[in-house]
Design a protein around this nucleic acid. Sequence first.
DNA 1: GCAACTGGTTGTACAATGCAATCAGTTGGG
DNA 2: CCCAACTGATTGCATTGTACAACCAGTTGC
Lengths: 170, 170
Amino acid sequence: MSNEHRSGCPINLTLEVVGDKWSLLIIRDMIFGGRRHFRELLLKSEEGISSNILADRLRTLVEQGIITKADDPSHKQKAVYSLTEQGIELLPILAQMAVWGRKYLPVTQELGIRAQLLEDGGPALWDEFMSELREAHLGIPKDRRSKSGASVAARLQAAYEAVVAKRKKR
Amino acid sequence: MSNEHRSGCPINLTLEVVGDKWSLLIIRDMIFGGRRHFRELLLKSEEGISSNILADRLRTLVEQGIITKADDPSHKQKAVYSLTEQGIELLPILAQMAVWGRKYLPVTQELGIRAQLLEDGGPALWDEFMSELREAHLGIPKDRRSKSGASVAARLQAAYEAVVAKRKKR
DNA sequence: GCAACTGGTTGTACAATGCAATCAGTTGGG
DNA sequence: CCCAACTGATTGCATTGTACAACCAGTTGC
């Protein structure tokens, strides 16, 4: 890892940080999958990341201030990874990628439904989701102007399970 | 290049297409820099891509339907690269990356000014810019509801040059 | 005819990544 | 107390991606 940058362009600098095939998938699993532990990220991911790559990316993401690492009180060797504000604000990038991917690539129905909800909800929904993430990862109480009872995370999960159930029935 | 995907997740699929350190920079130069030829992309880029990587990425991007390649009438060996609709719609992803990069990374002032304008203008400005790109790359006449006389591309360029001039003066 | 320009390819060296096996410390059940 | 299962990783090796320079053949303008 070099400290020198190829250029001072914001897009280039962003790509230098998250422009690889795994970093954003880890962030995606933390944001949409609620993963906080090494083993969860290792085994419950769709794509099957290998442990050395995961360890390397987690270390790098911590160095870059996108996530933090803390001890889990329940197990001395267990670590809890949390998103920082900087990490939470990657959500709009992920959302735009999801929109684009769903439009042009062979996305499966059950994995595309979240993307559709994110697209339909737009930036307002993203903001609400980011508030929830600030509560879960940073301990910042959520603004009580939330419109619906169910959390965004719960709604996305429910939609996903509904599609899975429907496909199973046929 | 394998035809198999790691998963049907829209974010993963998008990363498989543009999740490397160069593809999005090429798209960026085509969108914001107006580059259409191999030599322009090779020599006028901030980061200094090498010719074999550029050739490989251009070929891949054509295969994936993000850009097209056509003969230039002015020179029998000259090729013109154009964005497809699919390529033009990568703009919101680039814009979000620019916003995030400007907020959290050491962006230089002259290269960050475009990001600031894109952020201030928001999705409405992105749409206007995408209309211009459709006109330039796809030959689709632009809707004549454009508010200002100057094109978005021209406004971004003018802002960049203004910063460069101001910094030079000091 | 020749230099400059066109979009590339080739060769080589090195860095990043992918995969399987393995590791040492921790915990909980018996 | 013992041992299997679980914790976050590390190691070794093969494959892939990247960087850099040299080179190429066809085209154009002078």
